[in-house]
Every structure is written in structure tokens, then in C-alpha cells.
């Protein structure tokens, strides 16, 4: 009886040690193999320089967007962006499907009076900033995804500072779903408009272009940005709400 009680921990620790050594040996082998083949990769200089040169030279001319990243995201490879935002849309649907519960933990207390008042003054500016980032995506750094995240942050701050009941009453999930769907339909609608007016899906709409550098320029890019922004913002807010919901079994 005494022997196992003494040796058991030792054997276990030995087993653990064996396992660890084995794992590290295997990992080291894989790392070596990967290094051997990745070392063959041509250096950064070998990359296709024509691509970046092309974007820098004729990105502005083609799209009218000063922000070349936005030009690539929403014009050259707009279809991939559509796919990505569809993935967000699907993820929101999936999370709501999995986590949908009837109950919201009602905490209407929130934080202290000082925080509440300060945030009350700041909120419009945060919203303005989010909208600015969204609508100026073709002129300055930023765009629909970034602006949408800022808008979603407002919703999250609200439910922390004022209590979740407040935000829930103000902007019900139905409103958020409507905003999300509206954003997605804007994106898709602009794509279909591209087919009708320019002959290619998501083609930049010619009649919307104006002088470079003004707010309403760069064809359909700003509108796509706004659509994506609302979609991402509402989507993230919905995800946040699905995650803070509780079941009856969980204790409060």
C-alpha cells in the first residue's frame, strides 16, 4: 500500500516530463523543417513591385480616392470586402442563433453620477468621430470597418455606464438588426447598381465622381463605407448584447 502512494506522484511527474520532452522534440523538428523550406523564400525585394507601383501611380486616377488602401478595399477588390462583411453578417447571425436567450440581466444602476454626466457630454462627440471616420474613408485613414467599431463602442459604453437596461430601451435589437440589414443592402445595392449603370458588379459609379479631395467624390466608395460602417457597428453591438444575456439557471 505504501509503495504506490510514494511512487505515484513521481511516476506521474516523470510521465509529464516525458510528454513535454516528446512534444518539444516534435515541435523543434517541425520548426526546423519549416525553417528549411521557408528560408528558400525569396526576400521582400523579390515581391512584385509592379503591383505597388501600379497602385501608387494610377490608384487615384482610377478611383478618385486619396486613401489608396480604401481604393484597394472598396474598388479594386471590392468583391472580397463584400465577402468579408458577409462573413461578419453570418457570424452575427450565428452568434444570435446560438446565444439567443430570453433574459437580459437588468442592471439599471450603472456607475456613479460623475461618470454618467461626463459620458453624456462626450457621447455626441464620439458619435461624430465615428461618423467622420466612416464618411471620410476615401480621404483620410479609416473607413467603414473602423468607424463602425467606434459606433459599436458607444453602445457598449452605454450599457456599462448607464446599465444595460438603458441602452436596451433606447436602441432595441430590432433597430440594430434593421440598421445591419440596411447596411448590407446598401453594399449589395451599390454592387447591383454597378451592373446596371457601368456594366460590372461593384464598378465605381461614374456619375458620383467629383473633384478629388472633396467629401462627395470617389464614386460609390463613400456610400459603401457608410453602409459597411452601419453594418459592422450594429453587428458588433448585437454580438455584445447576445454575449451579456443570461439564462435562468445562471446565478446573478
Amino acid at each position: 500500500m505504501e509503495i504506490p502512494t510514494e511512487t505515484q506522484p513521481e511516476v506521474e511527474s516523470l510521465n509529464k516530463l516525458m510528454k513535454k520532452t516528446l512534444v518539444s522534440v516534435v515541435l523543434a523538428g517541425v520548426a526546423l523543417a519549416l525553417y528549411r523550406s521557408f528560408a528558400l523564400m525569396p526576400g521582400y525585394q523579390g515581391l512584385n513591385l509592379g503591383l505597388s507601383n501600379y497602385i501608387i501611380e494610377s490608384g487615384l486616377k482610377d478611383t478618385g480616392s486619396l486613401n489608396l488602401i480604401t481604393a484597394v478595399l472598396y474598388d479594386y477588390r471590392a468583391f472580397d470586402s463584400l465577402g468579408e462583411s458577409t462573413v461578419i453578417f453570418g457570424a452575427v447571425s450565428g452568434i444570435v442563433l446560438i446565444l439567443s436567450r430570453k433574459m437580459l440581466p437588468v442592471s439599471s444602476k450603472g456607475l456613479s453620477f460623475i461618470v454618467k454626466r461626463t459620458l453624456g457630454i462626450m457621447t455626441p462627440f464620439i458619435a461624430l468621430f465615428g461618423l467622420y471616420i466612416m464618411s471620410h474613408g476615401h480621404l483620410t485613414p479609416g473607413g467603414g470597418f473602423q468607424g463602425g467599431v467606434i459606433l459599436a463602442a458607444i453602445s457598449i459604453i452605454f450599457s456599462i455606464v448607464y446599465g444595460s437596461a438603458f441602452d436596451y430601451r433606447r436602441y432595441s435589437p430590432q433597430t440594430k438588426t434593421a440598421l445591419e440589414t440596411g447596411g448590407a443592402l446598401t453594399f449589395l445595392g451599390l454592387g447591383l447598381a454597378g451592373i446596371l449603370m457601368e456594366g460590372a458588379f461593384l464598378q465605381n459609379l461614374g456619375f458620383l465622381t467629383a473633384e478629388t479631395g472633396t467629401l462627395i467624390s470617389a464614386g460609390s466608395i463613400p456610400y459603401i463605407n457608410i453602409g459597411v460602417g452601419f453594418k459592422v457597428g450594429a453587428g458588433l453591438a448585437i454580438i455584445f448584447y447576445s454575449m451579456i444575456q443570461k439564462t435562468f439557471e445562471e446565478d446573478f
Binding site: N48, D62, D75, Y76, R77, A78, F79, A200, L202
Partner: peptide, 11 residues
Amino acid sequence: TTGYSNTPFVI
């Protein structure tokens, strides 16, 4: 082909 057919990275 979507977008500008003469660019090197169309879809």
C-alpha cells in the same frame, strides 16, 4: 471580371 480589367489584381 470585376473592376478594371487592365490592372494586375482584378477578381
